[in-house]
Simulated assay, not measured.
Amino acid sequence: MFTLYSFILLSLVYITHSENGFLPPYISPCELSTDKFVDCVKKQIVNSLPKFTKGVPEMGVPSIDPVHLDNIEIDGNGLKLSFSEAAMHGLSKCRLTDLKVDIGKSEETFSLAFKGNLSLVAKYVVDGRILILPIQGKGDALVDAQGVEVKIDSKLVHVKDTSGEHFKLATPKYKYTIEKTTFDLKNLFNGNKQLAETTLQFANENWQQLMDELAPPAIKQIVRTVVKAINKFFSKVPIKQIVIGYKESQ
């Protein structure tokens, strides 16, 4: 009979494996010595991305879809715009567009790029002008950014603990492009439909000006969250368990 004691024992075994390099079933190690190593890593990322972004609780990796953002403040060029209670949705549906892995040398690097449509849901407060048009209001905001591509370039350093050596992304740099953005700001001008429609149409026609101010702090927080999640995963799994044939430093 499967007793409570048996359940607790199995749970402890499972937790022990998790703490000493448990790999989720959708991630397999890659053989370093083959010329298909990068292809193998790419396959693992493509297969695991939708699941990984939803979190790996048994490894302490939190969900990053949505990404909860700090308040974003825009104050310049005659416009004051703030977003609070902001969350960016869509990372789990992004696709990998580029990957470079260089390990086993004196300086190891890791680069990846992903692309998709991201949606920002938040509370907004705005006052000022967008170019020549006045804008004022507060309420719910939805910002849809289409074709967002983010590329992250990072060094790979090693961190040692009792289970061995672990990778860690260090000093990451990033760049991004956005194909188009549309804004939907509810309750502009205290609900004046005609003024709101005219202003939103103008804002969407001139989305680049707004995104020049909005995108940098938002993308920075997204990259920071992604890097933190990857490093959390790395901290739970020794290099030797995800890269077959890797020689740890002495």
Rank of each mutant, 00 (worst) to 15 (best):
W207L: 13
E179W: 11
L133C: 05
S28R: 13
F114I: 07
S28T: 14
Y14Q: 03
E205H: 06
G116E: 04
G128K: 01
I72G: 07
P216D: 02
P134N: 14
L214E: 05
V243L: 11
E248V: 09
E248L: 07
F22E: 04
V41M: 07
T109V: 11
T181V: 14
S111E: 14
K155N: 10
D39W: 05
P238A: 06
F2H: 03
K186L: 11
V157E: 03
F189P: 02
A122D: 01
F83M: 07
G139S: 01
A113Q: 08
S106G: 11
E165C: 07
T171R: 09
T162F: 08
N231P: 09
D140S: 13
H166Q: 04
K123C: 11
E108H: 06
K168C: 06
N47E: 13
L99H: 07
I135F: 00
E85Y: 08
Q209K: 12
A145M: 09
L188G: 09
K247T: 10
L142D: 02
F183A: 08
M59G: 10
F110A: 13
K51T: 13
S111Y: 04
E108I: 05
N190A: 07
F114A: 09
E197H: 07
P216Y: 02
L99M: 10
H158G: 03
L4F: 01
W207V: 10
T225N: 04
W207A: 12
T171F: 04
C40L: 14
I219L: 03
N71Y: 00
A215G: 11
Y14T: 09
T198S: 15
D65S: 14
I152M: 03
I130K: 02
E205Y: 02
I8N: 00
I74C: 08
I222Y: 02
L185T: 06
Q201D: 12
Q208C: 09
P25Y: 09
K168G: 03
L32H: 04
T162C: 09
E31I: 14
I239M: 05
P24C: 10
S163A: 08
K151D: 01
D35Q: 14
Q194F: 13
G116K: 04
V243K: 12
S6T: 07
D98V: 05
K43L: 13
M88K: 05
D144E: 06
I45D: 11
G147R: 03
N77T: 12
V121S: 13
H68D: 10
I72F: 01
K80Y: 00
S48T: 06
S33H: 13
T181R: 01
V101Q: 03
A170M: 06
G245R: 13
Q209N: 12
N187Y: 12
K228G: 12
I132E: 03
N231D: 12
G147M: 02
I8D: 00
T198M: 15
S28C: 10
T16D: 04
F202R: 04
T109M: 10
K186T: 13
N192S: 14
N192T: 13
K43C: 14
N190K: 11
I222L: 10
M1I: 05
G21A: 06
I45E: 11
P57F: 10
H17D: 06
L12C: 06
A203S: 13
A229C: 11
F234L: 06
G104C: 10
L142W: 00
G21M: 04
K236W: 09
G128R: 00
K42A: 12
K193S: 15
L195Q: 09
